[in-house]
Design a binder for these strands. Structure first.
Lengths: 141, 141
DNA sequence: TACTATTTTGTAATGATTATAAGTTTATTA
DNA sequence: TAATAAACTTATAATCATTACAAAATAGTA
């Protein structure tokens, strides 16, 4: 994801009628920069340095605001905790059963449009694979 | 899913080296019959009538055994609780943003094989859509 | 400035899942 | 068959992500 200035981020939030508070700007900025589906804890730990008063409740609240504005989406890869993506270029997720790592990979969602059931409106598409990653396969030889 | 006799289920478990206890047979039978991704609570509530001593811990334990044997898979549609499917004919999931209902629909997973990243082995594929279902669309007119 | 609405924060509550240890059943061996 | 070990089930307690709630802080407005 390309660089985003605070001005850019402010504009993005205003377009969605979300007040651009410091916390919201920083959380959204972090998600645009991140490329690894951070958890709430990871977001919190990264930003507490910038915003020493930050509360974990605020991270949760803000994420929910951003999700409602369709700027962020939840990725429930593990069932133990949710992860969050700033709405990005289309991609699928792959989780390695052995090392547990989560990979992004390019995925053309248009390919699956023909299989959407008729009469339904789809606003979000997720594709999620599990298996063994290349690295683990090589290590097992 | 077609009818399964206790004998069938016993055989299925034995093939996976899982001892066919009453609890395991009943839980697996319930999952084969169910077509709605039941939660742990739903499984427990349904089976407590047959097995009055059943414990919720056993449901969790058994599900984990069945998952390791690849007879059952988890579906993390909501992030509040997990749902469970007996490995079924291929299908995708659709969750309506308005009424919350979860639909199954036919989906040919072979269509997405070409997009699997090279060098990775995929053993499970999930496709998950969100949007507005036909029924809600009709009601909103 | 005074007042109101919005946002943030800390603490407590909720609820799904797991850990643990004891009880029960099944399998094994002599 | 009796004794013993292994596997399975159960009840209770602990864990941990998430939400509820109410108070404190901030921003907006007249």
């Amino acid at each position: 994801m390309k660089e985003m200035t605070i001005k850019d981020l402010t504009e993005i939030l205003k377009e969605k009628n979300v007040k651009p508070s410091l916390q919201r700007l920083k959380i959204l900025e972090f998600l645009f920069k991140a490329n690894n589906h951070p958890t709430v804890d990871e977001i919190y730990s990264a930003l507490i340095k910038d915003i020493p008063t930050l509360s974990k409740t605020t991270v949760y609240n803000t994420l929910n605001v951003l999700i409602e504005s369709e700027l962020v989406k939840v990725v429930n890869i593990e069932n133990t905790e949710s992860r969050y993506d700033a709405i990005p270029e289309e991609h699928g997720h792959f989780k390695c059963r052995q090392c547990g790592k989560i990979y992004d990979f390019h995925f053309d969602m248009n390919l699956i449009d023909s299989q959407v059931p008729p009469g339904f409106i789809v606003s979000e598409k997720d594709v999620f694979f599990k298996g063994i990653c290349r690295e683990c396969l090589n290590n097992n030889i």
